[in-house]
Design a protein around this nucleic acid. Structure first.
Lengths: 349, 349
DNA sequence: TTGAAAGCGGTACCAC
DNA sequence: GTGGTACCGCTTTCAA
């Protein structure tokens, strides 16, 4: 073991290039390129191929992705953009999606990487930062900023596919849309059908969830409009116990008889606060969450939850691949989620 | 709106290059480079600078990061590698870390991206995949495969810093180590000090958590060894209700009086199952989780939880920056977490 | 103050 | 079957 010496060597010795491999194998760079890219069939003799592979092996040669994509004019990079300050808010559903999506992309020959978009920049600056990497595709997830202008920046700089994952797509982008309004509407419709009329809808205070909370609230309001005597109250709630206690008090004072809590995690928070405040669930207040996490089944009472199916990561990867191959396809929505409600104890009775 | 035409244009018109900007501004490529990189002071007249900037603006020019790093010989990319199949298991703590880490890196001039490492590849193949991107640094988090050989591959291909985040570092890598044994030891010591002697330790069945669950179990066993009459039983548990019910039954039958449940999420799962099985907490069984999520305070009884502080993302970013600037620094551990236990109702009495 | 040109690492056409 | 070489977009020395 001689770490120190290794380090010094590592910083002095430049990375082996294909030219180095060629020299070491006694062939030309062209030959190296053919062999190492499987273009050697009928061009390079088996003996030469073996020599080249051996040389590459011995030198520890690793191709330089940047040089390759510079020459070929297209990169294998797929950017999965998420708003950096909201990452913690997404939870296990999205994490699982990303993990499988990256794997699926790799099978199609792409490298998917997650890139956090800073919130303190304009959508255009953000798009320029992405465009510098010359990705083959950008998937802007969950409200990562995407405007018509930023789509233009990306496309002009050679990005072959721009997709919006979550919110409706910006003009020029393809969309994999999860209908947030429907989630609110389904939750509210269930509560109204159960006889509740004074609905509260949690609106997270956490910055950046507006693209979700707004439409969910709107969907609930729309559903309530068709029920005579129904009302909907917005309930701003931060993800802390203090805030939950305040909202619980407010729920009691204003005599609400049902709450759609944005998602399961806010629902758990609020359920505790309501119970601590002596509010019976579902007796006094019916409670509905969303996402249908395992969490929902673990709460007591078990939590009714609206589940919106995410698309299969493999399908999205295939779509991205298709769009990269043929970017002339007219932008449009390719997937629209359907919301389904899993009724449990927290909203019945 | 003419999306179709825009698309066709987008695929035909190549991305504007610095040469295009030069032509459009009527200057040389060199001048463009100086102006756009702030090297223009005392070299280029103000009038020319304005011309260049205007031209870049008009053409929608975005520099090509690959070409730049190819020429300059160093990239601004920092790879945050995580095992793809384990991403969902990490939870909000790590997500928040990554978000802030990326932001901090950006302030140092780097671009941090999350890269999922497929589990079905050898550590060396994985390292080669990373090396193709020629990152300035690689942070292998939470058991992304890192061996002495893969560190070598990275360093030889020009990666200036290789860090391990979580497990102890492989030879040649720097380490930001979170001591898993200590977590188990602290939990067990607390339970033993409270008079419990028949300890169970949850070992998640989910693949890929072994680097954490193993040491946590070992730490608990070590702590138990100094208490006469104390025993430790490993409790394999999958993250499902069925599995939890089975483990709960087993806990009751084998007369365990305390369980360290790996983390808060498994603790919640098991708490429910135990309560459903009529086991009193903390009366019959004391329960301890880890991570100290908000979740822990929301459970009833409130959950005792071992918290291990993560390093500040800003500090890690600064460390990465320093290592990139001076890669000759001898590898070593730069941070070692300290575990702290937050005692609540689930383990007292 | 500006421009010409070399070259980073790889690819692929064309000639031998 | 193999090698020479132009070129991808950008930076940077060296001359003008």
């Amino acid at each position: 073991m001689n770490d120190r010496a290794d380090n010094v060597r590592a910083q002095n010795a430049p990375a082996p290039t294909s030219a180095a491999v060629a020299r070491h194998a006694g062939v030309s760079r062209a030959t190296v390129s053919y062999v190492l890219n499987g273009q050697a069939a009928g061009k390079v003799s088996a003996a030469t191929q073996a020599k080249v592979k051996k040389a590459a092996q011995e030198l520890g040669y690793v191709p330089h992705a940047a040089a390759r994509s510079l020459r070929s004019g297209s990169s294998a990079l797929v950017l999965i953009a998420v708003p950096a300050d909201r990452v913690p808010a997404f939870g296990p559903l999205f994490s699982a999606f990303v993990a499988r999506f990256q794997t699926a992309l790799e099978r199609h020959g792409y490298t998917g990487v997650l890139h956090g978009a800073r919130a303190d920049r304009s959508p255009e600056d953000t798009a320029r930062a992405w465009a510098e990497l010359r990705p083959a595709a950008v998937l802007a997830a969950f409200g990562a900023p995407l405007t018509a202008a930023s789509v233009g920046i990306l496309r002009r700089s050679g990005t072959r596919a721009v997709l919006s994952f979550g919110p409706p797509p910006a003009p020029g982008a393809h969309g994999i849309t999860m209908d947030q309004e429907e989630i609110g509407a389904v939750a509210a419709a269930h509560l109204l059908a159960g006889g509740r009329r004074r609905l509260g809808v949690v609106v997270p205070r956490e910055h950046g969830l507006e693209p979700f909370s707004g439409p969910r609230l709107a969907g609930a309001e729309a559903a309530a409009r068709v029920f005579p005597g129904a009302s909907v109250t917005a309930l701003p709630l931060a993800h802390t116990e203090e805030s939950a206690a305040q909202v619980a008090a407010r729920v009691r004072e204003s005599g609400l008889d049902a709450v759609f809590a944005y998602n399961d995690e806010y629902a758990m928070l609020l359920m505790r606060a309501l119970q601590d405040a002596g509010v019976g669930i579902p007796g006094d207040v019916a409670l509905v969450g969303a996402d249908d996490l395992l969490l929902a089944r673990l709460l007591r009472p078990r939590l009714t939850s609206v589940r919106t199916r995410l698309p299969e990561p493999e399908e999205v990867a295939a779509l991205v691949d298709r769009l990269i191959s043929d970017p002339s396809v007219t932008p449009g929505e390719r997937f629209r989620s359907a919301a389904h409600i899993e009724v449990r104890e927290s909203s019945t009775g």
